[in-house]
Computed example of a mutant assay.
Amino acid sequence: MLAGQAPEEELLRRLAPAVGLHVLDLFILAGAAVLDDVAPVAPLPSSGWRTW
């Protein structure tokens, strides 16, 4: 929470390297929804690739 507001996506993206964290880790710590472009990708045996 920042002044009673949830942090914005752009703030989390810029803040993560400054505090020595991966962007995904900071999204999780902040309780923010994890976006597809920062979610880990894992192969599925039948249909190719999938985000978690």
Rank of each mutant, 00 (worst) to 15 (best):
G31D: 00
G20K: 06
V19A: 07
L26I: 02
P40C: 11
A3H: 14
L24M: 12
S46N: 10
R13N: 08
M1K: 06
F27D: 00
A42Q: 13
P45F: 05
T51Y: 06
W49L: 15
W52V: 15
G4H: 05
G48I: 08
L2I: 14
A18T: 09
V41S: 11
R13W: 02
W49H: 13
F27P: 05
S47Y: 09
G31H: 01
A16C: 03
W49V: 12
A3P: 08
V19W: 07
T51P: 10
G20F: 09
T51N: 13
P40A: 11
P7A: 01
L12N: 01
A16S: 02
A16N: 01
R50W: 08
V23S: 04
V38T: 03
P43S: 06
E9Y: 14
W52N: 15
V19N: 04
I28T: 09
R13A: 05
V23G: 04
P45T: 07
G31Q: 01
V23Q: 04
D37A: 08
G4W: 05
E10K: 10
R50H: 09
V19K: 02
P45S: 10
S47L: 12
L26K: 00
D25A: 07
A39I: 04
V38H: 03
P17N: 04
A18M: 12
G4K: 02
L12K: 03
D25G: 12
D25W: 00
L26N: 02
F27V: 00
L21P: 03
V19H: 03
H22P: 12
L24P: 09
D36R: 08
W52S: 15
E9M: 10
L11H: 08
E8C: 14
S46E: 13
Q5I: 11
M1F: 02
L21F: 07
G20M: 02
L24K: 12
V38F: 01
A18V: 10
E8H: 14
L21A: 08
L26Q: 01
S46C: 05
M1S: 07
E9A: 10
G4R: 05
I28A: 03
L12F: 02
M1L: 11
A32Q: 08
G48D: 07
D36W: 01
L24I: 12
V41E: 15
E8N: 12
F27C: 02
V41P: 10
D36L: 06
E9G: 06
L15F: 00
R13D: 11
P40D: 12
L24Q: 12
Q5V: 13
L35H: 08
A6K: 09
A32I: 05
L24S: 07
G48P: 01
G4C: 01
L29W: 00
V38S: 05
V38N: 04
M1W: 02
L21N: 05
A18F: 07
P17K: 04
F27L: 04
L44H: 12
S47N: 09
D36F: 08
W49K: 15
L12H: 05
R50K: 13
W52R: 15
P43M: 04
D37P: 03
L44Y: 08
R50M: 13
V41Y: 03
M1G: 09
P43H: 07
G31W: 00
A32T: 08
L35P: 13
A42I: 13
A18W: 00
E9W: 11
A33L: 10
A30K: 05
H22Q: 12
W49D: 15
M1N: 08
D36S: 10
T51F: 06
A30C: 11
G48Q: 06
W52L: 15
G31C: 01
L29T: 01
